[in-house]
């Protein structure tokens, strides 16, 4: 019902994919990035403070030191609250919809729910990103006026950017659920 596997993202960092299958028609995929490491935090703080001390030695104005403290604190808060995404979850529920949640390091959650009536398909796309070709999972949405056309493409796992092997895993599970839905919805 629940298994956890280790994959890597496009830059080679570690990612953990957690698949939970509550029932044949409700599955959850959770991609978690490594948390903020103490080492990088220390390195950034030390750099800022050393620079501030350098400036202080030059100008002999203590405002610089207090400014450095404020900048570090505000920067850290802003980074944790708006930038650093710890976990991205894709919850697919048959005949109800697809829910994407990204949880920030500060605990803030950003949720988007797409109703199943609007979903056309889930596909893996290829894209050129900087100097390399990457793959990403995306949800195709129907045009409300012409159901055969695609109106929008919603990328999934936007911040984690897992590699193809991880995406295939998620893709297969999602397609099973979608196939189950198609089979049951055509049934009278």
């Amino acid at each position: 019902m629940e298994d956890k596997r280790i994959f890597s993202d496009i830059c080679g960092g570690r990612l953990a994919l957690q698949c939970r299958s509550y029932s044949p028609f409700c599955r959850e995929f959770c991609v978690s990035c490594p948390r903020l490491s103490l080492r990088s935090l220390t390195a950034v703080t030390c750099t800022v403070w050393l620079a501030a001390y350098g400036l202080f030695a030059l100008c002999e104005n203590s405002m610089i030191l207090s400014a450095a403290i404020f900048i570090t604190l505000l920067g850290l808060l802003g980074y944790l609250h708006f930038v650093k995404i710890d976990q991205e979850t894709l919850l697919i529920i048959d005949s109800l919809g697809i829910q994407m949640t990204s949880s920030y390091a500060s605990g803030k959650e950003n949720t988007t729910f797409i109703e199943m009536g609007k979903v056309k398909d889930i596909v893996i796309n290829e894209a050129i990103y900087m100097q390399k070709v990457i793959y990403y999972l995306c949800i195709l949405l129907k045009d409300p006026l012409e159901p055969h056309n695609i109106s929008q493409v919603v990328p999934v796992f936007q911040s984690a950017k897992p590699r193809l092997d991880c995406l295939i895993e998620v893709y297969k599970s999602c397609q099973e659920v979608l196939a189950h839905q198609k089979a049951t919805s055509t049934r009278p």
Binding site: Y22, S23, L91, T101
Partner: peptide
């Protein structure tokens, strides 16, 4: 803006609760 769902505690053989 919309809704969000939480999966509640689940036991095999019982209906799914959201």
């Amino acid at each position: 803006a919309g809704v969000k769902f939480h999966v509640l505690e689940h036991e095999a053989g019982r209906p799914l609760r959201l």
